[in-house]
Write a protein that binds this DNA or RNA. Structure first.
Lengths: 188, 188
DNA sequence: ATAAAATGAATCAAATTTGATTCATTTGGT
DNA sequence: ACCAAATGAATCAAATTTGATTCATTTTAT
């Protein structure tokens, strides 16, 4: 599994976390949160709008590349599934940013940027394939499965960020919880 | 199951949703989003800070009361578990608000308001009890189970809000997913 | 139909935030 | 030790947002 090369500027990643922690912070506070002066932040990226746009672009590309690397269309579902988990856990900063700055309208048909729509389509399609190939139960819609999968991933990334759940073993945790659930196995 | 009486002002609930949709909207935009004039919003609640405070207070009380009603300490775990799911699905507006405005520092020991800390403690304790009484697996920490449970709940409420998952049958969906997982049952 | 209450549109000063610049200081490489 | 690049502190005008008020209009109850 070649995890997408995370060559994102460290300052940008710090901004992602800072913006997730305090989405309404002004530029002064934001600069302080990432440990630079207001002037340096300005030189790095002059306007707030640009910071957001840059982060969003970075996140979009990162997610799109990650998903592509998972080969959700053709790889064996068990393999692709594990890759997908690894992808989600990679780039936690951008994920934290997305948790707070992803807007539902990114997914509207009217949106010029079709990338998120495409990402959603690819994801939904994958979970549908998992159902067809007998990996996932079919009494729950593929869309719901998709939402729950990413929901678990995002909530655990956040939980780690809050110090509630350790990073180690998180991939296995997601896999266990998503596939088997939290209930005690009935041997009947 | 007596769902906590949701006597919250409708305008406040609309504000909860509006603030979830656009957390950085100014008061003008916020007023428009809830369908009133800036002046009316002002009369309802003069400052942004107060709006947030009021929503937070409402959400805190609502969650605390809901959890109390579940009797997580003494009710049979299967019963309490179902009540908990019903509670989470109730008051979706306030939950949407919390998804975007809950701050990790609500849980700091240094915080004057101990209510969220208490809520977290009660919740963690309940999942621990579920483990002790054989409902939930013990190879995952109670804390992680707690985070995942609410993660699933929140992500589905959001998914419903985005029109991705229907409201009907959501309680059963959460129960199935959390207890059994998405994998196909192996009859071995 | 009328009075009272609620709402909306418009306005405005104060406060805040933003975008931009200057200059002094610090840092890193050689 | 020296120079160049990067950073920080401070400042400032412009733009935006906020908090508050007034007055006209609409809604509601009686």
């Amino acid at each position: 599994m070649t995890t997408a090369t995370n060559q994102t500027d460290p300052l940008l990643l710090q901004l992602a976390v800072a913006l997730a922690n305090q989405p309404r912070a002004n530029l002064q506070e934001l600069a302080k949160a990432v440990g630079v002066s207001k002037a340096t932040l300005y030189r790095f990226c002059p306007t707030r709008e640009e910071i957001i746009a840059r982060l969003l672009e970075e996140a979009t590309i990162t997610v799109a590349l990650s998903l592509e690397a998972c080969d959700l269309e053709h790889a064996p579902v068990e393999v692709a599934f594990k890759s997908l988990i690894a992808s989600v856990l990679d780039s936690k900063e951008l994920t934290l940013f997305l948790i707070y700055h992803f807007r539902p309208d990114f997914l509207l048909e009217t949106n010029l940027d079709k990338r998120w729509l495409e990402i959603q389509k690819v994801s939904d399609k994958f979970f549908l394939r998992c159902q067809h190939e007998g990996l996932l139960r079919i009494d729950i819609s593929a869309v719901a499965l998709s939402e729950i999968f990413f929901g678990i991933g995002c909530s655990l990334i956040e939980a780690e960020h809050r110090g509630r759940v350790p990073r180690a073993g998180m991939a296995e945790l997601i896999e266990k919880m998503f596939l088997q659930g939290a209930g005690v196995q009935q041997k009947a």
